[in-house]
């Protein structure tokens, strides 16, 4: 709980502004929100068929006999 509050407090204004010209590192593939779209789609469907951990609403369609 304490860590959650710290993170929220940092997010709400505790961090320094990062100017556009300072964002080259943030634009690297390893820092992107979804570095592997094809792999993520497969994982979402596969894990949805095998685990109850799937993100709610992340993937529709079952019928994969893989459970």
């Amino acid at each position: 709980m304490r860590w959650a509050l710290i993170v929220v407090a940092m997010g709400l204004g505790g961090c320094a502004t990062v100017h556009p010209w300072e964002r080259e590192t943030l634009a690297q593939p390893a820092m992107s929100e979804q570095p592997d779209p094809e792999g993520d789609a497969f994982d979402a469907h596969f894990e949805g068929a095998r685990e109850a951990a799937l993100d709610p609403g992340a993937a529709g369609g079952g019928g994969c006999g893989c459970n």
């Binding site: 556009p20 964002r23 634009a27 820092m31 979804q34």
Partner: peptide
């Protein structure tokens, strides 16, 4: 110069989504 290009690209592209 590279910074300027990167900054321009970042302004035009969707931030840190990296798409």
């Amino acid at each position: 110069g590279c910074h300027t290009l990167v900054a321009l690209g970042l302004v035009l592209s969707p931030g840190t989504s990296g798409r």
